[in-house]
């Protein structure tokens, strides 16, 4: 474990806490893409298949459980919670995310570390996570003004993989045979997808204005 990875995991946890706060405090999920939340639930379920078989540390296991449970709880909440589901922007959240699942799985069948179920699902989860934010970014552009908590949620979600990139660079230089090319390249793509969001988020912070993404 290094400081970059810890910072990344804490930022990722922060994004989930901010989203939970928004949904429970405001009893609303307006501006949140259910499709992105469903994609994240698939990412964690596909990546943590080793939850019950491999034990690295208490921290690793606890965080995996937190990510799986929180992502499923958010999807459940947005689908079935009486008050919250009414605030879901159904007509704006129209990204065809099934293509992202299909494309990521096909890519995992081609590029993986080993042709085993575990490794193919792991690569699938890495590729899917890289594009999982797309429905959310599209929804933000369509819904015009973005409330603070939603903006912070997306910001932390984008920042966490940026810390992971620093972690991979650090491990590359400090560990002999460290070659996480699948995760590193995918992580770069993932962080790059947030570039324009980060730009407008920074502008709104600098001008102390409401975050608005150009349609």
């Amino acid at each position: 474990m290094n400081i970059f990875r810890l910072a990344g995991d804490m930022t990722h946890l922060m994004s989930i806490l901010v989203l939970l706060l928004k949904i429970y405090a405001t009893k609303s999920c307006s501006g949140i893409s259910l499709k992105t939340q469903e994609l994240y639930a698939v990412v964690f379920l596909a990546r943590y298949l080793d939850l019950l078989t491999d034990f690295f540390s208490l921290y690793n296991t606890v965080m995996k459980v937190v990510f799986i449970v929180s992502s499923l709880a958010i999807v459940w909440c947005m689908r079935y919670h009486r008050a919250v589901r009414r605030t879901y922007d159904r007509e704006l959240d129209t990204f065809r995310h099934y293509f992202l699942i299909l494309g990521s799985f096909v890519l995992a069948l081609i590029f993986h570390e080993k042709f085993t179920v575990r490794e193919i699902f792991w690569a699938f989860s890495i590729y899917l996570e890289a594009v999982a934010i797309l429905p959310q970014l599209v929804l933000l552009q369509r819904s015009g003004n973005v409330d603070n908590l939603t903006g912070q949620y997306v910001f932390f979600l984008g920042a966490y993989r940026g810390f992971y990139i620093l972690n991979w660079i650090y491990r590359y230089f400090t560990e002999a045979h460290f070659g996480r090319w699948i995760a590193s390249i995918s992580g770069l793509v993932q962080t790059a997808l947030y570039a324009d969001f980060f730009y407008y988020y920074f502008l709104s912070w600098k001008n102390n204005a409401k975050l608005k993404l150009p349609a």
């Binding site: 995991d9 990722h12 080793d50 690295f56 995996k64 490794e119 045979h177 460290f178 996480r180």
Partner: peptide, 10 residues
């Protein structure tokens, strides 16, 4: 088990 095949990151 070889280290690199196991994914120790979240």
């Amino acid at each position: 088990v070889q280290k690199e095949s196991l994914h120790d990151e979240l």
